[in-house]
Design a protein around this nucleic acid. Structure first.
Length: 300
DNA sequence: GATACGTGGAA
DNA sequence: TTTCCAAGTAT
């Protein structure tokens, strides 16, 4: 705790104890880097400052705020949970929080401890790595272990301290053991073996850029699409339209590394012609946002 | 218990 | 250029 008090990073969600804001931060931080979250966090809360504002928003507008952050199911579930809570108060215990969509064991414990002071420990990737190294054990009940260590006076800070240690010192690859406050207790001095992530498939796809003055043709992904349902993107092109693409970019989406060629062409059937300024307000996929940015059709 | 879900940036 | 992710959850 002393180490945390002296070394904690200043982060936007550490300036508040508003349960809603803590909740939003925890959802955004799931499998997502702090650096990527900060900007989205600030903008999201400006647009949806409280649960009521989020609950009455259209899903498309919620997704638009999330556009580019990834794992869009998180935004849908956050929105769904906000609607559920519109008529009741925010649950104050991890057990009840976990009943809400998008809130699992980790997030429930994080919100309950940080916002409400419940003495319940979290286990995330950081905590697992820290405990694994200290214990030099592959078979450890992380939840029981960290629950046994928790600071009952400051459970939220304790949880954040464990994660902060993993995120800034007990790094996956080159841990900074010299800076570690518990190196005397550590059984491994930072050794750690991780499973190699599965090799990703490679695929090449084409998109059509059909612009007309200040408008552009986009399509909305089907509501039942497995990947990014309801989000907007450029129309796909089934074949090569010119000898050289207007733009070629690489982009990875979960399990596939894509090479994307963008061809200038006519708006296909089923596409919608939209002013670029309007398109910018839609929930575009990250890839589409990237392409339009590269082509200077969007700012950022 | 696997697997799918997105993305941009560091190494 | 390629690898490896990052404060998990739902199915």
């Amino acid at each position: 705790m002393d180490w945390y008090d002296a070394n904690r990073r200043s982060l936007p969600w550490r300036k508040t104890r508003d349960p809603y804001k803590i909740w939003v931060s925890e959802i955004m931080l799931q499998q997502t880097r702090v650096a990527a979250v900060i900007e989205y966090y600030e903008r999201f809360l400006k647009t949806f400052p409280d649960i009521t504002a989020l609950a009455r928003a259209d899903e498309q507008d919620v997704l638009a705020q999330w556009s580019g952050l990834g794992y869009y199911r998180r935004a849908r579930m956050l929105h769904a949970a906000a609607k559920q809570l519109a008529t009741q108060k925010m649950p104050r215990s991890a057990a009840v929080l976990q009943e809400l969509p998008g809130i699992g064991r980790y997030t429930a414990a994080a919100i309950a401890s940080i916002a409400f002071g419940e003495p319940i420990a979290v286990v995330d990737g950081n905590v697992e790595r820290v405990l694994s190294r200290i214990a030099r054990s592959g078979s450890l009940d992380f939840w029981a272990a960290t629950q046994g260590l928790i600071d009952h006076d400051r459970p939220g800070d304790f949880n954040q301290a464990m994660m902060e240690l993993g995120a800034t010192v007990c790094l996956p690859k080159n841990p900074l053991c010299g800076r570690c406050p518990v190196k005397q207790s550590c059984g491994t001095r930072g050794e750690h073996k991780t499973d190699r992530p599965p090799t990703r498939k490679k695929s090449t796809i084409g998109y059509v850029l059909a612009t007309n003055r200040d408008s552009i043709a986009l399509v909305q992904r089907p509501a039942n699409a497995r990947l990014m349902p309801g989000m907007w993107e450029l129309p796909e092109s089934k074949r090569v339209l010119q000898s050289v693409p207007l733009l070629s970019v690489r982009h990875s989406i979960t399990t596939t590394d894509y090479t994307i060629n963008v061809w200038r062409g006519r708006a296909p059937k089923g596409s919608v012609q939209l002013k670029v300024a309007q398109a910018a307000k839609l929930p575009l996929t990250g890839l589409t946002r990237k392409i339009l940015r590269r082509l200077s059709l969007l700012r950022d």
